[in-house]
């Protein structure tokens, strides 16, 4: 009995230590400093390319779906997001135009004339680059220390976003303030994690990547 008790106490202490190491909350002043520094780095980013690994954890099916692809960004309004496995699909945002190309179909949308798409493209750009931290009309943000990363939790303010997402967590590398992971928590329990790997920034990108 004594042995079991000491094992339980040791386990509890270990768990507390691990919990602390995973993400420690920061003071309000320190959070403000970190957000300002991350926002400055995001605003200064001129271009980026990376590999993406997207994992969707489905609560209903207790299953996960892994997709892979690449992402390219060029300041200030060019984004190419493409999947290569297990399906081919690309989304290109270039100024006021957006194109979505799948296996058998391509659609081009005028972002200015489509309110929903305008919002989607704005949020995608700001999340990927980290500019979402300054979108105070869209999100409230809190920052925690995740050892090698800053963990920024975005809580949606707007009703349409709140209906879909309970929170979004951006993980920024402390070494270069780059977003390395995005976690989208849906209200119904699904979690989509997008890992950004082999990040190159600035990246030499041909404008033809963003041709619509």
């Amino acid at each position: 009995m004594k042995l079991i008790h000491s094992i339980l106490v040791t386990l509890a202490l270990l768990l507390l230590t691990v919990a602390d190491a995973v993400s420690a909350p920061l003071s309000a002043a320190r959070q403000k400093e970190v957000v300002a520094s991350l926002s400055k780095a995001a605003a200064a980013m001129s271009s980026m390319s990376c590999d993406i690994v997207q994992t969707k954890q489905m609560s209903l099916l207790k299953d996960k779906m892994v997709s892979r692809g690449k992402m390219y960004y060029k300041k200030s309004n060019k984004l190419r997001w493409e999947y290569t496995s297990p399906y081919t699909y690309s989304l290109i945002l270039n100024g006021t135009k957006a194109s979505m190309k799948g296996k058998n179909r391509k659609d081009v949308v005028d972002v200015d004339n489509n309110k929903v798409f305008k919002e989607i493209s704005r949020i995608m750009m700001s999340t990927v680059t980290g500019n979402a931290l300054t979108s105070t009309s869209d999100f409230t943000s809190t920052v925690a220390d995740g050892n090698a990363t800053w963990e920024v939790t975005l809580l949606p303010k707007r009703r349409d976003l709140r209906q879909m997402f309970s929170k979004i967590i951006l993980s920024f590398r402390k070494s270069d303030s780059q977003v390395q992971r995005i976690r989208l928590y849906e209200k119904k329990g699904d979690v989509t994690t997008i890992e950004m790997k082999n990040i190159v920034s600035p990246a030499r990108l041909n404008d033809s990547l963003f041709t619509i």
Binding site: Q54, K56, M58, L60, L61, M65, S67, W81, Y83, Y87, Y89, L91, M164, L184, E186, K188, D190, T192, I194
Partner: peptide, 14 residues
């Protein structure tokens, strides 16, 4: 049981 979601993993219909 089925789930429909878009390319970015955002759920549409369960």
């Amino acid at each position: 049981v089925g789930c429909m979601f878009n390319e970015f993993g955002v759920s549409g219909i369960d």
